[in-house]
């Protein structure tokens, strides 16, 4: 703490009175700080966390963009090996897409509940969201095993490598989301969330919706557009 010790000599005005007077703070001078509450103390009036989350999501666009581009380049590079057209089960994937879309709805309901400071419903909706996410993941894993049994290993061809990598990265994001959701539910239960609960839930919501919109893109580009 020695750093913080203030040398009285430094603190006293130095030099003549003139500069001190010049620099004196008039009584009642308002530097604008004291009236800014905890929520809006930033220059933009926006939450640091939320800004950071949006920056992160902007950055993630380039990550998924790269993986999607790799897939688009390689999807039908070789006609003589197993390709998307032989494998896709559109009704099944539509169902899992539907589940993920619904989880976005439950997520937003959870965020709304958190804004109302309704902890019980927040926990409920977050749990439902995590379950739906889990269901989606289960669908993915099922789909992967079906493809694998049909002969599409990770190393089979370029399509396989880029497909599994893209969808696997998305699945990893979903898994992280589920962990965050469950951890938040637990922390809400034990009241260990720091700071603004509604904002914490909203951040997880942003992440979750992002995972959802990435899937919207993947579903269309990877599954629906013919190779």
């Amino acid at each position: 703490m020695s750093d913080a010790t203030i040398n009285p000599a430094d603190a006293a005005p130095v030099g003549s009175d003139a500069p001190a007077e010049h620099m004196a703070i008039p009584a009642g001078y308002d530097d604008g700080q004291d009236h800014i509450g905890l929520e809006h103390h930033t220059s933009t009036g926006l939450s640091n966390t939320k800004l950071a989350m949006w920056l992160f999501l902007g950055s993630e666009c380039l990550l998924f963009g790269g993986l999607i581009s790799t897939y688009m380049l390689y999807r039908n590079r070789r006609a003589d090996t197993l390709g998307p057209d032989q494998l896709w089960d559109i009704p099944f994937t539509s169902a899992t897409s539907f589940i993920l879309l619904m989880s976005s709805l439950t997520m937003v309901l959870g965020v709304q509940a958190a804004k109302r400071r309704d902890d019980r419903n927040t926990r409920l909706w977050l749990t439902v969201t995590a379950l739906l996410g889990g269901l989606f993941l289960a669908g993915q894993i099922y789909e992967f095993t079906v493809f694998y049994r049909e002969g599409l290993g990770f190393t089979t061809n370029l399509f396989a490598s880029s497909f599994y990598t893209l969808v696997g990265f998305h699945g990893a994001h979903v898994s992280v989301g589920i962990i965050m959701l469950m951890a938040t539910v637990g922390m809400l239960l034990r009241n260990r969330v720091h700071g603004n609960k509604a904002e914490t839930v909203e951040m997880i919501g942003l992440y979750w919706h992002f995972v959802d919109i990435v899937w919207i893109v993947i579903f269309t580009l990877v599954y629906l557009i013919p190779a």
């Binding site: 380039l62 790269g66 790799t70 190393t155 490598s161």
Partner: peptide
Amino acid sequence: AMPVITVALVLLLFQRNYDATF
């Protein structure tokens, strides 16, 4: 820029360590 090199590095990593074909 970092996510872009991340993609490239991940592809290379998977190629070298898990026999991907990128």
